[in-house]
Amino acid sequence: MSRSFSDNSLVLILSNAMDLKEENVALTSVLSRNNYNVVIITSNLPASILTKEYESKGIEMKNVYFIDLITRYALGSNPGNSDSVQYVSTPENLTEIGIAITKLLNNIENDRIVFLFDSVTSMLIYTSSDKITRFLHFIVNKIRLKNSKGIFMATGGGINPALLMQLRTFVDAVIEDKEEIDDFFSS
């Protein structure tokens, strides 16, 4: 198996919880610099907070999109979708997440699209492992059929072994070493 992002469509990154946000920012920076349209499915932090974080790190936001699973659930109201942000009612509404992914896939002009799931682990707070496994299998196939790419981030010790085993079978590469990330995504 080749060890570069250009040769792999789907990647699982296993991280420790303390590094998850930092790795999200670093990945988004590298991907946007390499002219990818980055669609972040965020179940960890609201899009507004991630946007501020990215901008403070100098990330160009014109090719960054969000499917925000947190804001509507936390606020109890819809702040209103935009071209760059789709709000989902609750993190457990997998059908609505799938529809938002399909909508963005169809609306983004450039074919260089990467879907970044910022925390499979935090999705487990809202939905059972079995449902997430089925949902991710559906999404993985949608990503492959559309010739896009996907990155799934999870905390190594915070995910049940059955789901982890399934995730490993869905992806082309697994990165467990923080130092590998820059080399893998820069090449």
Rank of each mutant, 00 (worst) to 15 (best):
I40C: 04
F185E: 01
K146P: 00
S148R: 09
K57P: 01
N106R: 11
V64Q: 15
R33V: 04
M1Q: 12
G150P: 01
I125T: 15
I175F: 11
S129D: 09
N81T: 01
S4Q: 03
T51A: 00
E109K: 14
I49Q: 15
L104C: 03
D7Y: 09
G157R: 09
L145D: 15
K57D: 10
N44W: 10
L50V: 12
V64M: 15
E60F: 07
L116V: 12
S4F: 03
I101S: 00
G80F: 09
A162I: 15
I40M: 14
A17D: 13
N63Y: 05
G98V: 04
L20R: 07
S119L: 01
N35M: 09
M123P: 00
I132K: 00
Y73P: 02
S148E: 06
L12I: 08
T95R: 14
M61C: 07
I49A: 13
Q166R: 11
V11A: 12
D118A: 06
L145Q: 14
D118M: 03
V120L: 06
D7E: 10
D83I: 00
R168F: 02
N34H: 14
G157D: 11
S4T: 11
N35V: 04
G98D: 05
I159E: 04
I143F: 09
S148D: 06
